[in-house]
Design a protein around this nucleic acid. Sequence first.
DNA 1: CGCCGTATTGAGCGCTCTCAAGCTAGGTGG
DNA 2: CCACCTAGCTTGAGAGCGCTCAATACGGCG
Lengths: 232, 232
Amino acid sequence: MTSLIPNSTCTRCQFSPFCLEPEGNSSCQHSVNNVVKQYRMLKRKEMLYLPKNKFQNFYAIQHGAVKTFESDASGKEVIRGFYFAGEILGYESIYTGRQAFSAIALEETLICEIPYHHFLELLQDKPKLQEHILFLISQRISVGSYLNAINAEQRLAAFLLDLAIRFNSAEKKSGMCLPMSRQDIGCYLRLTAETVSRILTRFQKNKLITIDHKHLQLLQPDQLQQIADGLS
Amino acid sequence: MTSLIPNSTCTRCQFSPFCLEPEGNSSCQHSVNNVVKQYRMLKRKEMLYLPKNKFQNFYAIQHGAVKTFESDASGKEVIRGFYFAGEILGYESIYTGRQAFSAIALEETLICEIPYHHFLELLQDKPKLQEHILFLISQRISVGSYLNAINAEQRLAAFLLDLAIRFNSAEKKSGMCLPMSRQDIGCYLRLTAETVSRILTRFQKNKLITIDHKHLQLLQPDQLQQIADGLS
DNA sequence: CGCCGTATTGAGCGCTCTCAAGCTAGGTGG
DNA sequence: CCACCTAGCTTGAGAGCGCTCAATACGGCG
């Protein structure tokens, strides 16, 4: 079992209560709870896992980005989620015991691998942590609730706002670098890449954002929120 | 704290591991774990809780049906979920500590009220139950994944199949009685009531189902599955 | 019986998709 | 350094699905 070396990402990782001592100083000794079995560095487009694989690990993203997807019966790719630094993959696979989807790195990505059985043992030892995992999975249920919005502008505006929240604040000011393609965004939002492109262009014309290939900056988040809420 | 009187629904309730003894006989003594604080009988259209209410309880449905919904910024009702006998409400509210939505009975409904803090205490006492709650919440994440399907027929076919699975098997053979309106189905599936009605009529013409007001029977579930999968 | 909420059915329109044609950026090789 | 290539992105034109609006039918209940 690899010792965890806490770093700047760890402090904003959803799993930090499981890895780090509550009183841990930021000069970062090894973690007390060795829940991380190993690290994995993934190159762009490298698979993290395949569907039907046995579910054995949670994966925490240290840096980088991952998408999960499946192919529907007619072969079309459906994106189920994007995951960024500090976020956890795996919750949705607990109940089947199998990976529900495929997961692939969108850019160079460092992953902490956390065996589920280690994790359960930790919960047994420290029942106080139970509440935290229930908190996290509860949160996961609401991810992407904006996908239900009726029209394309609403969904895309909500998606951009969601990204801004999930990226770290430094990136928010100067602009974010989207790790996924227009196609990916479209698959996630049930739109075509063309529609995504058209609406991004429209948002830019209306001075709501600047978009230059993968570089995105939100100029008027409040206005985007209005659109997301269906108020304009 | 009201003693739980296990009945036929309890055995197929998602929370039975928390209420009933593993070795419990079916002649049904009182439960050993008194997690149920009280029962509540709701009339049709009676509210179970309001949004922003403090999250304090899980609710298990003994019989009946409940819908959760919210009103978007422009005032339109958005249905977030339907819940039937044996299912649990509340998972999505753990992380905010507030009810995310409104919940209302669709028909006469009997509810078991399970205080969250009692529930957590039980988990501390019996850590083996941890795995079960993780299992259940994990399952909850995938509910309604068919909402992402592109077209109306796919979503509605998937919805009907989902209902058939969640209704008990006796009802499946003879047909199910839909507790919700066309409008509700539409709100849930991002369709208008008119579109729901038209497609149900089309399914009936094609001998996939019989539909007579609230009485629904699936004649060709396999064919519906094909439609849900986008294969026809 | 009459009322009212719900469901059905029809006609026309608009949003988003499809298909197709450029365009851009980045990489490769001469 | 530039010509070429490719993948991804943008932009346009036309088509179709599902929405809107409206009229009608149905059923439960007083």
